[in-house]
């Protein structure tokens, strides 16, 4: 990782490195492919796979190659499964301007496409709740939100909107309750899931105060022409059935310096993203200058997802 060119954007560096590694690893893997193990429908290699956090660099590269080959044969196009690590001195924070959100759900579907969510059974990582403005006099009571509104045009008269996805809690109940340690908080604050280690007990869903976690009840279906081949091991790679998934702040994008897909999709610019440790970032500006709040603050989950207005 030395001698890199600091002038190129973050993702260009990551991609070139991966391309090199992938070429080398694929050469090794193709030699093994002819063996008798490939005839087994039950994937022993996957069955005995180690916990992501205990893998060596070689293990991870082998995993990436295996996944890429699997997805390439399933979807018929080249895949990139990255394992880009966190960046020193970066903790991600998210801001959402509820004064601006119009409830158009552009973010919901941008997220579905970017993050390869199952189309059927349908999974949406973002849920947009609609509230009566009059009721806001009593504060936002999440129990009165309606995710199923269907108007001709939004924003509808007298309503306001609160989109909810993973709040990236600093003290996250979901990672505490997971019996296998298959979900944890990364150094940059992203709560991730090892889809190959999750046993699907759904204790984390029971423990999440924000309904952010979603289970693959059936075999996830993604049309091959819509699948996003630019993926991350801990993020948007296609998931197996029977495991839990959730928003990762688009880990495959943000660790390369890019904005999450929902930020880019929002037509009104209500979604803000940046480095909480950088005093000049947009997220720090709004924390310092706007009226911000977090959902269910009384639970002390300490979200890194801030709602603001004014």
């Amino acid at each position: 990782m030395k001698n890199r060119d600091d002038r190129v954007p973050l993702d260009a560096r990551g991609a070139s490195r991966r391309r090199f590694l992938r070429g080398a690893a694929a050469a090794g893997a193709s030699a093994l492919a002819a063996g008798p193990a490939s005839a087994l429908s039950f994937d022993l290699e996957a069955f005995f796979q180690k916990h992501f956090r205990e893998m060596s660099q070689e293990d991870i590269e082998a995993l990436q190659t295996r996944l890429e080959r699997k997805y390439e044969s399933r979807y018929g196009k080249p895949f990139n499964v990255a394992s880009t690590g966190p960046i020193d001195g970066v903790v991600y924070g998210y801001g959402l301007d509820i004064g601006r959100c119009i409830g158009c759900r552009r973010c919901v579907y941008a997220c579905v496409e970017e993050n390869n969510q199952s189309r059927d059974p349908e999974i949406h990582w973002i849920r947009v709740l609609e509230f009566e403005r009059e009721h806001a006099l009593r504060g936002i009571d999440l129990e009165e939100g309606n995710p199923y509104y269907d108007h001709e045009k939004v924003p509808a008269e007298g309503k306001f909107y609160v989109p909810i996805a993973c709040q990236m809690c600093e003290d996250s109940p979901c990672t505490d309750v997971c019996p296998t340690g298959a979900t944890w908080e990364e150094p940059d604050g992203i709560v991730v899931i090892d889809y190959d280690w999750c046993i699907g007990c759904r204790y984390c869903i029971a423990s999440c105060p924000y309904g952010a976690r979603h289970f693959n009840w059936g075999e996830p279906q993604i049309p091959a022409d819509e699948v996003n081949p630019d993926t991350h091991v801990l993020g948007n790679r296609p998931r197996p059935r029977g495991v839990v998934e959730k928003c990762t702040f688009c880990i495959q994008r943000v660790r390369n310096g890019r904005y999450p897909a929902c930020v880019e999709a929002c037509p009104v610019g209500a979604r803000k993203f940046g480095n909480l440790l950088d005093p000049n970032s947009e997220i720090r500006y709004l924390l310092a200058n706007k009226r911000t709040f977090v959902l269910k603050a009384e639970l002390r989950t300490q979200p890194k997802f801030f709602y603001f207005y004014g």
Binding site: Y148, D150, K153, V154, E219
Partner: peptide, 27 residues
């Protein structure tokens, strides 16, 4: 105001393809 994208499916309607082969849509 603009037209919103469709609402999510309520849980009662999420049935998946219980009767479909898991590999059906695989390319």
């Amino acid at each position: 105001p603009i037209e919103p994208l469709p609402p999510p499916r309520p849980p009662q309607q999420i049935a998946g393809r219980v009767r479909a082969e898991p590999s059906e849509v695989r390319h």
